[in-house]
Design a protein around this nucleic acid. Sequence first.
DNA 1: TTGTACGCGTTATCAG
DNA 2: CTGATAACGCGTACAA
Lengths: 340, 340
Amino acid sequence: MQKDITIYDIAKQLQLSPATVSRALNDHPAINHNTKAIITSKALELGYRSNMFASNLRRQRTNTIGVIVPRLDSAFMSTVLSGMEKVANEGNYNLIISQSLESIRKEVANAKTMFDSRVDGLLVSLASDTENLDHFSTFFKKGIPLILFDRVMTQNYCTSIVIDNLKAGYDATNHLIEQGCRRIMHVSGSLKRNVYADRLKGYRLALLDHGLPGGRELERANNLTRQDGLDIAEYIKSMPNPPDGLFIASDFCAVTCMGALKQSGFSIPNDLAVVGFNDDPVSLVIDPGLTTIHYPGQEMGEIAAQSLINHLTGLLRLSTTNTILLNYELIVRGSSQRYS
Amino acid sequence: MQKDITIYDIAKQLQLSPATVSRALNDHPAINHNTKAIITSKALELGYRSNMFASNLRRQRTNTIGVIVPRLDSAFMSTVLSGMEKVANEGNYNLIISQSLESIRKEVANAKTMFDSRVDGLLVSLASDTENLDHFSTFFKKGIPLILFDRVMTQNYCTSIVIDNLKAGYDATNHLIEQGCRRIMHVSGSLKRNVYADRLKGYRLALLDHGLPGGRELERANNLTRQDGLDIAEYIKSMPNPPDGLFIASDFCAVTCMGALKQSGFSIPNDLAVVGFNDDPVSLVIDPGLTTIHYPGQEMGEIAAQSLINHLTGLLRLSTTNTILLNYELIVRGSSQRYS
DNA sequence: TTGTACGCGTTATCAG
DNA sequence: CTGATAACGCGTACAA
């Protein structure tokens, strides 16, 4: 546990001033090439590493980005995080990651921690019961940029990165209609969240456009867990007039529901055509493969992080009302393909 | 973008010295209850937040834990991280997370970043091609604790948290034998990693104990990806004398392999009984359900983080040669159950 | 129980 | 191009 090397040590050994050393190490233009070379080599020799705290304290910024996600243990989120980590790492930023566990209470606490950690910026995907962005007001006040991704809130303070969930919901439903479905059910999650609310809207709109029946009997909202998938299967089996199309806002839930229905003798896609959402790896595991909406988690993470970094470095000053819309793609697989 | 409140501001307003304020805020015993109350309430009123950098700079520690994992986008890893985040958060530590993407090169870079970020401790699961721990020697030298989890390396410098992969591999194989399999194939990952090498050893041992045939034809090592699962299915179909039992060291790979074999007319478990590893959610999606080894990711993360924190706070000084062994569980599902 | 004064390692300013 | 010096905000030895 020996002492750290500082710029003073280097300065002393080289008979230079600490200031010069500091500048050289930061590649300051106004430093002689020679001395710069001498200093960097000496630094290497002594195993010098810059003290981020001193530097942060002095510069009043941290090169750290805070991330708050609903859950870490989700296939989609982990691809998003993977993308963020990649970009952050390349941009010489650290990531502080925390999860709200779908609870506003924890989200508030996380926000506070992030604030106290003095992150340079924040990337957030909202918990399912978050109603407003008040807990981020401290950030807004201090001009710390906040970018929302995936589960966003249409508000005028911050940039959002999303897909067009309404259109995607429409497309998913429309696809079922094209496959001949006439009675289509939709299962969504917390309607406080844009992702689910919009998909539902898209679903309704598609039905409307084609003069198909909808209504409460055909709409369910739950937490999209495994158990919810099983429950939906039970519900469908109990319906006097069961649907011939099913659009579930999450693959994992869709897949378990499908499994249960298959076991009960439903033929998929003939009795019931199914479409999920997310292109979770499981959609390829089930037989037949699950038709789904693919949207690029990795890319969403990369773009979110990159936008934030660009903003921080002043490369690209995002208007605070900006929304970045990513493309999605309907991936048709066996669970919905009646005519090939 | 107004200026931050410091202890000086509080001190001035209260006609006290900054030292007293600092002590009060840190709950120092030698401070009058009254003044303490006055100070904390004033701090709250002014919206004071401690400056971690100044504090870290002063105290020479960061309350930050570094985590390096092979991949963020893995079901298992994300449960582990979830556990770590929970404990770290409760213990007032921040997590800096990065991924090696299974590459030693990136792992080395990550280690350096962590070192420069002056993390108080490190939690690491090794990349698939890591050969030694030399890139962590800087940590050892400075006495910064390093805990390895899941993919560990038996070395005398640091604590490891694992399950008994050999025994688990043995149990998995033994289960297949009990179900009447006589020709059992095993698919593993990088044999540089304990997790795969040990499972393979367990497999071999079980065969040996029961006088069953093994050998190169029945052992495959790959990256356990989706594609690898499909390849294995092809391989099995091409075998003149195909196996009647299959033990794959990762669920996701097992599940895709199973799917492909089913499509080719294999009856599971009758023609071929299958066992996976990890209890990934997908193991419940496939039909029949995949028999697997469950091991507690969340718990592993919690224990890793807690051990590190205990060590840091001096609550529990782990011997550096310690190994913590977690329990695992064989979960029997339809993919291997021939007799019920 | 409280105050004084210094140093943690950098970087920015100003001067040369 | 380089040097001296003053912060950044906090914690703590020492003094009172």
